[in-house]
C-alpha cells in the first residue's frame, strides 16, 4: 500500500486575545486510511509568551497507509486560553488539509469561534464561559454551518514535512509534473 509520512511541528500561534494559550489537535482521516504510528490526538503545553508569538513547538510524526485518495488527512485544532484564575476558555477552532505533495510546508491555520446568544455573550463577559460547539466534528467536515454565527480569531502556525512511498506504483500523481 502507498504510504504517507507527515513529520513536523505545531509551531505556535498569534493574533488571539491572550498570549497564554494551549492547543488541542486531532488528526481526521477517511475510510481507507490507517494511522500506523503517531498520536491521533494530543494537547500542547500551555505557553506564556514573552514575545508576540506563542510557542508550542509540539512535534508531529505520523505514518499513514492509504488505499484511496479520498479522505486525505486533516488536522483539526482547538485553541484555548488560560485566564488569570487558571480556567481554560475556547479561543478558536480551525482545520488544515495535510499537503499532498512532498516537501516542507509552513502553513497558517486561520481560526474562528462561535458567537452565542446575547445571554451567552453576557455570560462570556462576566463569567468567562465561552460558547463551544456541541459536536467537534463540524470543525473539519463539510456539514452545513448555515445557522452558525462565528467571530474571526487568531492564526495557528504549522510546519509539516511530507514524504510519500510507492505513490508512483499505484499511479497516484500528487504534484505537478515537469513538462518535457
Amino acid at each position: 500500500m502507498a504510504e504517507l509520512y507527515v513529520i513536523g511541528e505545531l509551531v505556535g500561534a498569534t493574533g488571539f486575545s491572550s498570549k497564554n494559550l494551549c492547543c488541542r489537535y486531532s488528526i481526521v482521516y477517511g475510510e481507507g486510511w490507517d494511522l500506523h504510528s503517531g498520536e491521533a490526538t494530543g494537547q500542547t503545553q500551555t505557553d506564556y509568551a514573552q514575545n508576540e508569538m506563542t510557542i508550542w513547538s509540539h512535534p508531529l510524526d505520523l505514518q499513514f497507509s492509504l488505499s484511496t485518495i479520498l479522505g486525505w488527512p486533516k488536522i483539526s485544532v482547538q485553541v484555548f486560553k488560560i485566564d488569570s484564575y487558571g480556567n481554560y476558555d475556547l479561543e478558536g477552532y480551525g482545520h488544515i488539509q495535510i499537503p499532498q505533495s512532498t516537501g516542507t510546508f509552513n502553513m497558517k491555520c486561520v481560526t474562528w469561534k462561535p458567537i452565542g446568544s446575547s445571554k451567552e455573550e453576557y455570560a462570556q463577559k462576566f463569567l468567562g464561559v465561552t460558547p463551544r460547539l456541541a459536536n467537534d466534528s463540524i470543525i473539519s467536515n463539510g456539514d452545513d454551518r448555515r445557522f452558525l454565527r462565528t467571530q474571526t480569531s487568531g492564526i495557528v502556525y504549522l510546519k509539516l514535512g511530507i514524504i510519500t512511498r510507492e505513490m508512483d506504483k499505484y499511479g497516484i500523481v500528487t504534484e505537478e509534473q515537469p513538462e518535457d
Binding site: 505556535g12 494551549c22 503517531g38 498520536e39 494530543g42 494537547q43 500542547t44 503545553q45 500551555t46 505557553d47 506564556y48 509568551a49 514573552q50 514575545n51 508569538m53 506563542t54 510557542i55 508550542w56 513547538s57 509540539h58 512535534p59 508531529l60 510524526d61 488560560i82
Partner: peptide, 17 residues
C-alpha cells in the same frame, strides 16, 4: 521533554527566544 508528544498538556512554559 521538548521532543515528546504526550505529557505536554500538564506543563506550563514560557517562550524565550
Amino acid at each position: 521533554f521538548a521532543s515528546l508528544t504526550t505529557q505536554r498538556s500538564v506543563v506550563r512554559t514560557q517562550s524565550t527566544g
